[in-house]
């Protein structure tokens, strides 16, 4: 059932939820801090330990969760519009693992290929190239004659995930122990490496990409009718498709570069938003951005506190929530309800 809330109501609610969860997340962690301590750390009159916890551990992490969650959700919503199918998700159709594979290749073989210094830049660039390449590949494969073949799309995803798994397996064989740990990190996803440099990098890449995507709402609506129909409606289909794919690749690539593969956010969030306000992309895109950020902040809070003081990979949590959700979606689609 679709509720069709007014767009402004939902957007304010999602933005408020993201903000509120962000504030709560700054207050929650293995070290109990009260509101006064958090405010003190922000405005500078408490001890070093509290300041460090708030400013250099929790704040960058929450900021990164908001950015990566929002970016993955808006990329998922865009891909679903492009592929004309509500089952497209960066993780499911192989885009995330393509990005992760490229990044992992740089980690394991990078020292030989680029030397130490280039590695810092090589990583996000490789992740972006990997996500761009796989998005393009799946897009070309799944769509011919202006139609999307859902089976082809999901099968391509399976094939790419398997291929990446195989190549990562080879890399595991040649990797040393340190590199091995990094590989696991990439495959499970975690925000545990969030520092300010990562936040600034993501902000610089993801914020402009997200804002740009928000302007494509009308065009994505038209694309849902079909490529030629969109063309007839006055959309420059080629340019719009190319722009959307590159922006999605940037978002997923940047997200994977800092946090590994975090699945299912791009699937679950747009679907939820559609249930709340309907399928119009002018509402779905900003709604997904806010709600995706909020969900990842919440999931990361769970990852930090569930096994405290140790932590869980947040990708496991999102998969545990997302996979059953995906099955429900599939069943619904089989019954023709989607």
């Amino acid at each position: 059932m679709i509720l069709r809330l007014p767009r402004s109501v939902l957007l304010s609610a999602c933005a408020a939820a993201a903000l509120l969860l962000g504030i709560i997340a700054i207050g929650v962690g293995p070290v109990p801090l009260d509101v006064r301590a958090v405010l003190g750390a922000l405005f500078g009159d408490v001890d070093d330990a509290t300041t460090a916890i708030v400013l250099s551990i929790r704040l960058p992490r929450v900021a990164l969760a908001l950015l990566v969650g929002g970016g993955l959700a808006i990329a998922g919503a865009t891909m679903q519009g492009l592929f004309r199918n509500p089952l497209a998700d960066p993780g499911l159709i192989g885009v995330s693992s393509g990005a992760a594979l490229a990044a992992v290749t740089v980690i394991v073989l990078g020292d030989g290929l680029f030397g130490g210094m280039a590695g810092r830049f090589a990583l996000p660039i490789a992740a972006f190239a990997g996500s761009l390449g796989t998005t393009w590949f799946v897009y070309r494969l799944a769509r011919f004659c202006g139609r999307t073949h859902i089976a082809t799309m999901l099968l391509a995803g399976i094939a790419i995930n398997a291929l990446c798994g195989a190549v990562i397996g080879v890399l595991v064989y040649v990797a040393n122990d340190d590199q091995l740990r990094s590989l696991t990190f990439w495959q499970m996803g975690s925000l545990g490496r969030a520092g300010w440099p990562e936040v600034w990098m993501c902000l610089a890449i993801m914020l402009p990409a997200m804002i740009w995507l928000l302007t494509l709402g009308r065009s994505l609506n038209a694309l849902v009718l079909g490529d030629s129909e969109a063309q007839y409606l006055g959309i420059d289909v080629q340019r719009c498709t190319r722009t959307a794919i590159i922006l999605c690749a940037l978002l997923v690539g940047a997200g994977v570069a800092v946090s590994g593969v975090i699945g299912f956010i791009g699937l679950v969030i747009p679907h939820l938003i559609r249930l709340l306000i309907g399928p119009d992309h002018r509402g779905v895109l900003p709604g997904a951005a806010c709600a995706g950020g909020a969900l990842l902040v919440a999931a990361d809070m769970g990852a930090r506190t569930a096994a405290a003081p140790a932590e869980l990979p947040v990708g496991l949590l999102t998969a545990a929530i997302g996979a059953p959700f995906f099955l429900v979606l599939l069943l619904q689609q089989r019954r023709g309800a989607v």
Partner: peptide, 19 residues
């Protein structure tokens, strides 16, 4: 003694919490 997790996947805050 209390365990702070795996050496390859640590959280600074868990360590700080031990003061």
């Amino acid at each position: 003694l209390p365990k702070l997790g795996y050496i390859r996947q640590l959280n600074a805050e868990g360590i700080i919490a031990q003061r």
